[in-house]
């Protein structure tokens, strides 16, 4: 009962922030508010008993997404100069869409009602059989990695394409057109070196952030965590170092070729696990064929593919951040 009050409270705030994002003209404010939007969404997920999703939404929604939007804003304009175009057609279509949904959801099962069909058909099988088939406490990781491992394989390749796309669009280093030459711009604006305190504290925390990322990676079976969140956290640590020390030093820490190789290797590891399980006589991505004892095989399979996912996501986020920061005003 308590959590219902909190979720109502947070959902209303969610709508208010969304409307504020819509109305503000300054793009920077919109990015800031979308950071708050993601944090409220993550708190909501936490109240709705989805710990893994809350962690992912916070790390990716509030963290990586804000950093990406800010680096894109730095390269493009900062004000939404155009007055809103004829507001009748958009208003009509969106209210029609909203009306249809509200009309339909009157028959939908209420929040949390236990005899909804969703809790009856497939979900109980996962909750009962996971300890016996895969023996991993975190059922979400078990379903994500093993029962629906093919989905996550597709997921790794979606992230892989995002990296490929950004590299093919921003990979070509831009011809230098403007007057500020390299050295002078570096000194003045691309880093926080002349801020003593942020520099010291930032650099001191980078190793702990990466360590925490690795903890989340390998703790994925027992608590909320897993490949995606760990990759994003490790990338966040490297991005913090690049923010504090400036782009070129950041690229020395994790060079461009290394992070794109990491991406390709992660995706390859995941597919290789599938192919090996095929070669050993099982079906594609059937981890129990990986070793003599099926449960041990499942554990090994989940560990390897989570490592693959972590490598890919970390490599992608670092590559994308470097591609944007290298594209600065040169």
């Amino acid at each position: 009962m308590i959590t219902i009050v909190f979720s109502l409270f947070l959902l209303t705030m969610l709508v208010i922030v969304a409307v504020a994002i819509l109305r503000t003209d300054n793009l920077f404010t919109a990015v800031m508010l979308s950071g708050i939007f993601s944090l409220i969404m993550a708190a909501n997920f936490f109240i709705l008993d989805a710990a893994d999703v809350a962690l992912t939404e916070a790390v990716i929604g509030a963290g990586i997404s804000t950093v990406l939007f800010l680096s894109a804003l730095a390269l493009t304009a900062e004000y939404d100069r155009s007055p809103p175009v004829g507001t009748w057609v958009p208003l009509l279509t969106s209210s029609a869409l909203g009306g249809v949904i509200i009309f339909a959801t009157f028959q939908a099962p209420r929040l949390g009602d236990p005899n909804a069909i969703v809790h009856k058909h497939v979900a109980p099988w996962y909750l009962e059989r996971t300890p016996e088939l895969i023996d991993v406490p975190n059922v979400v990781t078990a379903v994500l990695a093993s029962f629906r491992g093919y989905d996550t394989l597709g997921e790794v390749f979606v992230v892989f394409i995002a990296c490929i796309g950004v590299m093919s669009l921003l990979g070509r280093v831009r011809p230098r057109r403007d007057s500020i030459e390299e050295g002078e711009f570096e000194k003045r604006s691309d880093n926080l070196r002349h801020h003593l305190i942020p520099r010291v504290v930032g650099k001191m925390l980078v190793p702990f952030i990466v360590l925490f990322g690795l903890y989340v990676q390998f703790h994925g079976d027992f608590g909320p965590g897993g490949g995606f969140q760990a990759g994003a956290l490790i990338a966040a640590g490297v991005i913090l170092y690049a923010l504090v020390e400036g782009g070129p030093r950041g690229r020395e820490l994790v060079p461009e070729w290394f992070s794109s190789m990491l991406v390709a290797l992660g995706a390859l590891t995941y597919t290789a696990v599938g192919v090996v399980s095929m070669m050993r006589g099982g079906r594609f991505l059937d981890y129990s064929a990986l070793s003599h004892d099926p449960i041990h095989g499942q554990h090994m399979g989940i560990l390897i593919i989570e490592a693959g996912v972590g490598m890919t996501v970390a490599g992608v986020m670092i590559t994308i951040f470097h591609a944007f920061s290298r594209r600065g005003i040169r």
């Binding site: 800031m32 950071g35 944090l39 993550a42 936490f46 710990a51 809350a54 962690l55 916070a58 790390v59 509030a62 963290g63 804000t66 950093v67 800010l70 680096s71 691309d190 880093n191 926080l192 801020h195 942020p198 930032g202 925390l205 952030i209 925490f212 903890y215 989340v216 703790h219 608590g223 909320p224 965590g225 969140q229 956290l233 966040a236 991005i239 913090l240 923010l243 504090v244």
Partner: peptide, 19 residues
Amino acid sequence: DLALAYALINFIGVFAVLL
């Protein structure tokens, strides 16, 4: 662990704004 991850992300967000 979620709370720690949130604190960390918030810290990086402020640094991105600063830069």
